[in-house]
Amino acid sequence: MSDRPVGVFDSGIGGFSVLNALQAELPNERFVYFADTAHAPYGERGDDYVATRTRAVTRHLVDAHDIKAMVVACNTATAAAIHLLRVDHAALPLVGVEPALKPAVAISRTRRIAVLATRGTLASAKFNALLASLAAQADFSLVPCDGLAAAIEANDAAGIASLCARYAAAAGTFGIAAGEVDTLVLGCTHYPFVAEQLRASTGAEVHYIDTGAPVAQQTRRLLAASQQLAVSATRQEDTADATDTTRDTRTTLLLASGHPSQLDAAASRWLLRSAAPAAVFSAAAMAAA
């Protein structure tokens, strides 16, 4: 058993979609969420830059917050640096994220799948190895969504609507008939927050796939295997009434390398009410590496 926190990291607020799933899956765990807002967005930067930042943030969370596990809640950072973190912190349970192509293949009936992701993710060797392993099972339409994560960070409603329409159109014709794209992979942790805007272009019958729940489940498995689950850490539906909104107060610390007000505002928009802490603590927690 361990009351040490779990670290969660993203370049900005996109990882809140993963944090929501983690809080639902592990309601008794404490979390430290680090948004590298001073150096975001990652998706259009080079691998070396992203790897340097990812390693620096992980060192900070290990040294300053004594985290017991690390969730890299960023597709671009996972692709660029998860293998380096496994060397740097061999004893630390690590969970990364990647576009959920395998679940998409399992659920698609037309065998036409669209993947919306950052340019960095789509260009990575890790993603392309995964894509190659599944190429015979489905046709994939890959769409680099330049600017979409930044628009979500800025809460730019007009920009989000325009970009969602543009990138959905670039993905192909959506539907459930033969030859149509029936499954959409949200390949960036920011994108679940604009699913409603994307639905305006894809229609309600298209399957949407993201990685929040599987990442949370894998985090539980790793904590259990290392005997580090918090005391009485069980699924919330097994232990509390669904209307209980007090269980997670003061369990999540929010940190930012940039100005904390952006993170606080995003938390009020995107963190689920039933899982968000009652008080959000933000700080410019780390100088630029």
Rank of each mutant, 00 (worst) to 15 (best):
A90G: 00
H60N: 06
Y42L: 09
D63C: 07
K68N: 04
A73N: 10
L26M: 01
R53P: 08
F9T: 05
A80Q: 08
R119P: 00
L94R: 09
V62T: 09
H89L: 06
R59E: 09
V72R: 08
G15W: 08
T78C: 01
D10W: 11
H60E: 06
Y33V: 10
F16D: 03
L85W: 09
V32E: 08
C74G: 05
E44F: 10
L84H: 15
L101Q: 01
M70D: 03
A73I: 10
K68I: 04
L116M: 06
R86A: 08
K102W: 04
V32P: 07
V115C: 03
L61Y: 13
N28Q: 06
D48P: 04
D47W: 03
A90T: 00
H39V: 10
P103F: 05
L26W: 03
A24Y: 00
D66P: 04
S108P: 08
N75S: 07
V115K: 03
A40M: 14
A91V: 00
A73Q: 11
P99W: 14
R86W: 04
I107H: 09
M70R: 14
A106K: 14
V32L: 12
R59I: 05
A24F: 00
E44V: 15
T58Q: 09
Y49D: 15
I113N: 01
P93Q: 04
I13V: 15
V32G: 06
R55C: 15
A90N: 01
A100G: 15
N75Q: 03
K102V: 03
A69F: 05
A117Y: 02
N20H: 01
E29F: 07
L61S: 11
H83P: 04
V18K: 12
H65R: 14
V115A: 01
